[in-house]
């Protein structure tokens, strides 16, 4: 992993980071297997260099960028965010990246751009989960995700290219991934190759797999439980072993309500989960 140059984020004094060793060994990246340690084991040979990202659809200036060049010129900053997985665990992670909105504006979105659709690399040769349904957990690949335009343009939404000051390891979605801190982790699509601005709400992978369990919005919400488990609290993955694990209350919008609640002011969040 290469070192990155970025504007650091001064964390609150009481903030406890999840140790880097856990951030890079406990992952969901079903393209490399459904077990939490499978991605760290199976993703190491993913060829992340060179890597291009195409932006197309409802934009005046579609284009393809060299992601490694982009890292050098765009101006990176650190963002320490809580990552809340839909499986009711969370981590505090120092990401390095840039605002998605600023990046998208380079391509001049048209007035018809209402949603943003993302797509992960599809390469069954490199990704065992795409070759075999059993390894890949039954997900229909390539993995796709989406955001509403206002969500995508929100300053909290970033494309991340690194964590703990260095480029992303493959299991965390190298070389470029989405991080939307007020949504469940599965919205943070990894190893992105394509971004398409569209007029209609795009399909999303987990919603396709189990629509009654995973919605398009997937905002962290302690009031709306997953049909099979509670979302009211979460296990925080911090330093220490088995007996250091702490359960903490889950906050509306994962603690970012002040910044983002207004985006959903007219919506019934029980219906649009």
């Amino acid at each position: 992993r290469k070192s990155l140059t970025f504007n650091p984020h001064e964390p609150a004094p009481d903030l406890v980071l999840t140790p880097q060793a856990k951030v890079i060994s406990h992952n969901n990246f079903y393209e490399f297997g459904t077990g939490k340690t499978d991605p760290a084991e199976n993703a190491q040979r993913l060829r992340t260099e060179p890597w291009t990202l195409t932006v197309e659809g409802e934009v005046e200036k579609p284009g393809t960028v060299d992601v490694w060049k982009l890292m050098g010129e765009i101006g990176l900053e650190e963002r320490i965010y809580r990552m809340r997985c839909v499986e009711a665990w969370s981590m505090n992670i120092p990401w390095v990246g840039f605002e998605l909105g600023k990046f998208l504006k380079r391509f001049a979105p048209t007035s018809r751009a209402k949603y943003v659709a993302f797509e992960t690399l599809y390469d069954p040769e490199q990704m065992p989960g795409q070759r075999n349904r059993y390894v890949g957990g039954g997900v229909d690949y390539p993995y796709v995700e989406g955001l509403r335009m206002d969500e995508a343009l929100h300053p909290l939404t970033i494309l991340s290219v690194g964590l703990y000051g260095k480029t992303l390891p493959p299991q965390n979605g190298a070389p470029i991934r989405l991080v939307v801190p007020w949504k469940y982790g599965f919205k943070g699509i990894k190893s992105i190759v394509k971004i398409r601005l569209v007029e209609k709400m795009p399909p999303t992978s987990w919603n396709k797999l189990a629509p009654q369990e995973y919605g398009f919005y997937a905002n962290v919400n302690p009031e709306v439980d997953h049909p099979r488990w509670s979302q009211a609290s979460e296990r925080f993955i911090g330093p220490g072993g088995l007996f250091a694990v702490k359960r903490q209350p889950t906050l509306p919008f994962n603690g970012y309500a002040e910044e983002v609640a207004s985006l959903y002011s007219n919506m019934d969040l029980r219906k649009f989960y």
């Binding site: 856990k22 951030v23 060994s25 406990h26 939490k36 340690t37 499986e87 665990w89 296990r235 993955i237 072993g241 088995l242 694990v245």
Partner: peptide, 15 residues
């Protein structure tokens, strides 16, 4: 495995 911390990032779930 518990005393060695060999149960991974989310040891409770694993256990």
């Amino acid at each position: 495995a518990i005393t060695d911390g060999r149960l991974g990032g989310d040891p409770v779930k694993e256990l």
